[in-house]
Amino acid sequence: MGLLSSVFKKNVSEAPQKPAAPAKAADVVQKVETTNKEVKPVVDKISVGYTHLSGCTGCTVALADNYGGLLTLLDRYVDLKYHLTLADVRHIQKVDVAIVEGSVCIQDKLAVEEIKETREKAAIVVALGGCACYGNITRFSRGGQQNQPAHESYLPIGDLIKVDVYIPGCAPTPQMIRNVCVMAYLLLKGTKEQKELATKFLTPLMNMAAKGTSACFCELMTEVINQGLCMGCGSCAAACPVRAITMEFGKPNGERDLCIKCGACYSQCPRGFFNTDVVSEYEAINEAIMAALQ
């Protein structure tokens, strides 16, 4: 009886976590409105921070590779509060959205403090890139590197804090970062319809964040082929940044030693997730995003 009731209790306490995604969006909006009014006269912008942990700056480069689009984002939609390379401000501040690049070295006290502070001071935390989401190439670290040979253990940020949105990939594409930025803006500042659309668009990325911190080619086997879902389109092979995936007789074949665990293949797979109602509106959504950046 005791066991049963403890299991039951556990289920009950976990249950409200699941539908948190849409509800959370509303919470976030309220928080933002209150903070923004006192901080900035430009009420329409959302405040964004960028925490740079153990990553190669490739994600930053991908963000910057939006070229003119990045300038438009910064001009109209985003107030970049802190960013090691782009803003020359690195102390973590209160923001609406904190983007995190890189994994956390748990032997590096500063990194651990920074990721905790990031979570505490941000309404939404976005893990940008394979390292922040899944550990990526830093998973393979065995330490012993000068000048900090004891820095050997790297964790995806989701192992230390709650993460709201994932953008996997190594590097994530400039277009994906751009789309998420525009959608995050619509979620926080848009009309009712825009908020609904943004929520729908971001839901799969929130689901990924809720799912866990482990990714590799293997998910194409366990979650797609083993589940009888693969139809051999080749999206995964096109997404893999290290060409570890080839299509053999219409199915993905992974060179598992080449896989860097970035999560691009499974997230790109249309049988990984496919939100029909959003993707069917691809024409209108693409046009809206392009118009926002004109």
């Binding site: 990939g169 277009q175 994906m176 999206s235 293949c265 997230s267 790109q268 249309p270 993707v279």
Partner: peptide
């Protein structure tokens, strides 16, 4: 179309 809206690895 998924790849156009969600280009995780299709830069």
């Amino acid at each position: 179309r998924k790849g156009q809206l969600y280009p995780f690895g299709w830069r």
